[in-house]
Write a protein that binds this DNA or RNA. Sequence first.
DNA 1: CACAATGGTGCCAGTTTTTGGCACCATTGG
DNA 2: CCAATGGTGCCAAAAACTGGCACCATTGTG
Lengths: 237, 237
Amino acid sequence: MNSRLRQDEIVRSLRRAGTSTVAELAIQVGASRRTVLRDIAALRDEGFVIDAEPGRGGGLSLDPHSVQTTARLSVSEVFALLISVASMRAAGNLPFSSLADSGLAKIEKALPSDKIRDLRQFLDCLYVGPLAPQVDISDMGEMDPALLPVFEPAFLQRLHLRFDYRDAKGTQSRRHVEPQAMLILPPLWYLVAWDPSREGFRHFRMDRIGRPELVPGSTFRRRHVPFDDGVRRVRFA
Amino acid sequence: MNSRLRQDEIVRSLRRAGTSTVAELAIQVGASRRTVLRDIAALRDEGFVIDAEPGRGGGLSLDPHSVQTTARLSVSEVFALLISVASMRAAGNLPFSSLADSGLAKIEKALPSDKIRDLRQFLDCLYVGPLAPQVDISDMGEMDPALLPVFEPAFLQRLHLRFDYRDAKGTQSRRHVEPQAMLILPPLWYLVAWDPSREGFRHFRMDRIGRPELVPGSTFRRRHVPFDDGVRRVRFA
DNA sequence: CACAATGGTGCCAGTTTTTGGCACCATTGG
DNA sequence: CCAATGGTGCCAAAAACTGGCACCATTGTG
């Protein structure tokens, strides 16, 4: 078995099992304990976050947000991605555009050095004009990329969410809501959520949300989200 | 020397030299003829298109557009890229968005299957509103992704370009120009070029350009491109 | 045609890298 | 103290890679 394939297998096993011991992994991938430990070290080098509890009852566990994926892209595809992200950025300071940038930076770094030079030289000839955002972005704050790991499980497992919110007038409050949808009206993002205490839907600007936390064990049902502001909206596909 | 590094070196050599023999490559990368042949076979397996002319005066040549790159991306980065591309698409039918999609499809395919399910489920909660394009796109044609391989060398080597052009009134003409810049005013792209016969700059909508061809051996100098329409423009970085 | 230059394949021995086993250490819970 | 766990260093065995060689097919040139 190729060492690369074995490492992928280890990642899959850890994701499935949640937590596992080195000895178990060794049996599953058909390699020795020593080799699995070497592979774990290699995966950590590549950015996978693998926690280890020593001692009786311990084991390994993988942070699912550190899972990485490899893909082989043609130069044209890289170029197209660069254009998309740059054009988005021209619309303003968008949430997650810095994350997209870091992804692209990794992709670029993997290109042969002379191809990067070509690409850069080509990009020098490009000028991107602005997209017109639907809203005034003069008071737009930066959205924290760290919100993503909190919001994703909220949507996937339908968990209640608590967070601080600062409204347009600047008043602070602590909210407790059922997240139902995300509405992206570039460059602004809104959390569309049902507020049980107010028995109604509320929109929250993502950049005004602070200190979000999941409320464990508090599932709710999906509701039909009303959009009543007349804006044409594209379902994300 | 690592076999991966050696293969990269071979790709670089082939890109530099245009065409080369196995014996030459062997000397350049400091390996034997046999090993270079093995590496060539490996590169072909990975999707690199390497033509071989047997016989006296023959040699190897690499199709530069088959150059691919692998990058390891975190799931969050993939997510951010998906958002960027989808938001762009919400602005209309953009040139190259299909290329970006195909790149993303590859990336998604490389994700562990359960992670894809998560991601898809999360995306189901997202609604993307439209960006407002600066121009009327009612008569917008599709831009041919195959144009890219022609335009890239035109900019990199500063070669004259010939193409058919259909102007706003529908009149066809064959143009011969010096490409100076690309202006992206989403969702439209313009080629900004110096027209020697008219001694002036002209803007060409990319989706109205047909049958472009390079004029070999016809270099020109870069000119200062005037932008006189008062639109804020972002230099691509 | 003969020949030289080129890509390509099969084989095998030498070299390098990877792997597995072992001993051992640190930590943790019983 | 003991058993179970992650982690490291070392070394020999196993596997993979490499280089040399013989050889084949194709192509252009004398």
